[in-house]
């Protein structure tokens, strides 16, 4: 079996953070795949919610949904509702985790998926929030998964689409967001958490074979670390095989 690709590594790492019997509000792409993997392995009772109004997504190998509202996503789900309704469950505190990808993320875990450059004269107009802002504002704990490039890991995002810890310290709470906030960021290089007081992102554990200098050289801001930086356990063959069955990538390649 070929080793895990960077994307597979990220997906496996974040799937381990989803505990059984919890409720996860997942964005499409890696967050959804990670939720599917968690259900297949250690969290068979994890409830997966999609913003398209699907509560309790089940997954079929090789047939993962690519959007938040489609029949593949609805198959086997015990409840189909409307979009606004799903987010009102989040606002009422029912969702343990939100999981999001990020086009751009900064040292306080703020995410940009709207605009690169100036708001009134954008260099690139991106698709926008969708439900990402709501997931980041309202879920009890936010997990972020993204590829690690210095253009993505910036000191300050061009536009805060989805709020992290805003400017750090108590600024998130001061802005009126009483719940949630980013707890972890997962990349193919490392896992990050946020300082309990300053709310700055810091290196928590390194992926196998990665050095702290490598992480720093691919990050666009000054990184601190926890006192005792750990090692992320490498993917097991069971994790990799299960993931490849789900995504339809040939497990024997």
């Amino acid at each position: 079996m070929s080793p895990a690709s960077p994307e597979e590594l990220r997906t496996i790492t974040i799937s381990r953070m989803l505990d059984d019997h919890r409720v996860v509000f997942a964005g499409v792409g890696a967050p959804l795949v990670a939720s599917a993997l968690a259900r297949r392995l250690h969290a068979p009772h994890l409830s997966v919610v999609l913003e398209g109004g699907i509560i309790g997504v089940t997954f079929r190998d090789g047939s993962l949904p690519v959007s938040t509202n489609e029949m593949r996503a609805a198959f086997g789900a015990p409840m189909l509702t409307d979009i606004t309704d799903v987010f009102l469950y989040a606002q009422a505190g029912f969702f343990d985790y939100g999981v999001l990808g990020a086009a751009q993320v900064d040292r306080f875990g703020n995410i940009n998926s709207s605009i690169i450059g100036d708001h009134d004269h954008p260099t690139v107009r991106l698709p926008g929030s969708g439900g990402a802002n709501d997931i980041a504002s309202l879920c009890n704990k936010l997990l972020i998964v993204t590829s690690h490039e210095s253009r993505r890991f910036v000191e300050k995002v061009d536009f805060i689409t989805s709020p992290g810890w805003l400017s750090g310290g108590t600024t998130r709470c001061d802005a009126g967001l009483r719940q949630g906030g980013p707890a972890a960021v997962v990349t193919e290089l490392a896992v990050f958490d946020f300082h309990p007081v300053s709310k700055e992102m810091r290196v928590c554990a390194l992926q196998e074979g990665v050095t702290i200098d490598e992480v720093r050289s691919r990050t666009g801001f000054e990184l601190t670390t926890v006192a005792d930086v750990g090692q992320v356990a490498p993917p097991t063959s069971v994790e990799l095989q299960t993931l490849r069955k789900l995504t339809g990538v040939d497990a024997h390649q």
Partner: peptide
Amino acid sequence: ATMMGSDL
């Protein structure tokens, strides 16, 4: 309670 504090 959503959208608060963001650039949105």
